[in-house]
Simulated assay, not measured.
Amino acid sequence: MTNPEYNWAMKILRKSAYSPHLENFKIEEGAIIPFGKEGEPPTTFTPNTKLSSVLLIRSKELPEIKHSINTITYYTLVPISAEEEKLVKEIGTEKFMEMLGLKDVVDLNRKLLA
C-alpha cells in the first residue's frame, strides 16, 4: 500500500509493534503513539484529517488470556488529534473514553472532542 490516504494504518501498526524494542516505550493503557518521524511533532495521518496519534486502550471486547506465567492483553488503537491528546493528558484515558463513547471499533469520521 503506497497510497498515503490508506497506508497510515499499516505504518502506525508497525510503529506500535516496534516502539517497545527501539525506544524506551512501554505498551500499556493510556500510552500515546504519535504518527510521523521520531523526534518531530506528530503529523496528520492524511491531509484530510486532524488525527495524528493513537491512544492505546485495553480491549473492551477481547478478554485477557492468562497462560502459565504469561498474560496476553489485547489493545485497541484509538486515533486522536493533537488537541485530543492534550485533553487525554488533562482528564485521563478513562474519562476521555467515556466522553468518546467508543468500544473496539473506531470511526475515523467521528466528531473530535477537542
Rank of each mutant, 00 (worst) to 15 (best):
S52E: 13
E40T: 15
E40A: 15
N48I: 07
L13C: 12
S16R: 09
Y18C: 12
P4V: 02
I33A: 03
K50C: 06
E29I: 01
K26F: 03
F45M: 11
S53L: 05
S52K: 09
I32C: 09
K50H: 10
I27Y: 02
G36C: 10
F45T: 05
S53G: 04
E5K: 00
K11T: 04
A17T: 14
I33Q: 04
P20K: 09
E28C: 08
K37G: 07
I33R: 03
A17D: 14
K11S: 04
S19A: 15
T46E: 01
K37E: 15
K15Q: 11
P34F: 05
G36K: 08
I12Y: 00
S53D: 04
P41E: 15
N7I: 01
G36F: 08
I12P: 00
N7T: 01
G36L: 10
L13F: 12
I27M: 11
P4R: 01
E23F: 13
I33T: 03
E28N: 06
N48G: 02
K50W: 04
T46D: 00
K26Y: 04
E38C: 07
I27E: 07
P34H: 05
A31P: 03
F25Q: 05
P41D: 15
I27K: 11
I27P: 05
E29C: 03
H21S: 14
T44P: 07
K50Q: 13
M10P: 01
E23M: 12
A31C: 06
A9P: 00
A9M: 09
